[in-house]
Design a protein around this nucleic acid. Structure first.
Lengths: 216, 216
DNA sequence: TAGATTGTTAATCGATTAACAATC
DNA sequence: TAGATTGTTAATCGATTAACAATC
């Protein structure tokens, strides 16, 4: 049971490795050394080897890593080799945009969009039906939904999250600007756009401050 | 010039402090101690005090922190006390959704949406005009645009980023799944949704693996 | 075999937490 | 003044980088 806990920092880097390897694969690259990869990705070769060795020895001394093999292995680690049935809660602009996004190729399949507005009954996005919230419980159970994407108004998020948890949902991808409280066995991943924008703005100001003195 | 470099980890936490303080302010809370805040936010009081002291002594021994004062100070640090003129490049679903988002209250003012599709000429989102890409250079200069939001197809992002850099843009908020190469004086903040979703999926699998053995 | 490059241990660096003197 | 709580230094913990023996 006690596989040593992988640090968050490592997990965060995996999708980026996966992306770079995918591109190499497309370009017909067969093998890569940690050294070359480190140059491409602007990280240290040491870090790449350490990160990968958390999960097993994927390389070979004197050769490096086979791109296809490593790509697939990281895919398995990330779980993108499996299908993840998903629903979007909130049929507004953002929910719409996400429904149009091509997450399928990584295994994330959007099965429905849920909303409360009766005007949306019978509509669909790319064939993904918009359903009313009173169908939620049945649908989640029937379609074995794993992930719910929360793109609804802030004041309705908390109750909706609770409701989803009661349905047995495994994971919440939360776009609302608010920290959710859920049981330990439910995974929450936040996308706080405002936070991201604020970090951007901090970095603009801090860059300006650093360079103010130089232009006398 | 050499104000000691603030670590990325600290910057990442600031917007969250800002949000919690904003809520307290709305609820009429006047003062808060690092201890109380630590309970609310689920971080250590030590960390809060360390984080804040990177920027100055905002508190008072025996009293704690004045909520309004601290809120304003963090706002200044993040630069949300200033106006940041912004444009969105890409009038698709995502660009649309972002144009509808209420970033104004934090100082981020969307001035225009740019696209290449002639069918969008003359349209607008909440009064924000959709303009054609050939007007880009003039508009950025005239309106002193600081931030460009990149929500366009992957294959056109790199050239567009270059073009924006040549216009003298200060910051790119990049939603494309791709690492941008820009000069040192241009700030890039990435929102890689696919990466976020993959981390979510990793955590689902890893939770399942950890608990597999228990259900014999 | 010789050269290359991994896997892994050890050293360094940085971030978080604990402790406490300063002070309101 | 006594109590509370900060600001700040010191201790701990974890993550990154360097080094190198193992091995393909």
């Amino acid at each position: 049971m006690e596989e040593r806990q992988i640090s968050k920092a490592v997990i965060k880097r995996l999708p980026r490795y996966y992306r770079y390897l995918g591109e190499m694969l497309n370009n017909g690259v067969e093998r890569i050394s940690s050294g070359e990869l480190s140059t491409k990705m602007q990280v240290t070769a040491s870090q790449i080897r350490q990160d990968l060795n958390n999960f097993g020895g994927f390389g070979q001394q004197g050769y490096g890593y086979n791109v296809k093999f490593l790509y697939d292995e990281i895919g398995k680690i990330l779980g993108v080799d499996k299908k993840h049935p998903m629903i979007i809660i909130g049929g507004g602009n953002f929910g719409h945009a996400l429904a149009n996004y091509d997450f399928e190729k990584n295994g994330f399949i959007t099965k429905a969009i849920f909303d409360v507005r009766p005007s949306l009954v019978g509509t669909d996005v790319r064939g993904i039906p918009v359903l009313m919230m009173d169908e939620l419980e049945d649908f989640v159970a029937r379609e074995h939904i794993e992930i719910a994407v929360l793109t609804l108004p802030k004041d309705r998020v908390a109750e909706t999250a609770d409701r989803l948890v009661r349905c047995g949902i495994k994971a919440l991808w939360n776009f609302a600007h608010l920290d959710l409280k859920v049981p330990d066995d439910v995974v929450v991943e936040n996308v706080h756009l405002v936070d991201s924008l604020m970090q951007l703005s901090y970095r603009i100001s801090s860059y300006e401050n650093e360079h103010k003195k130089e232009e006398v």
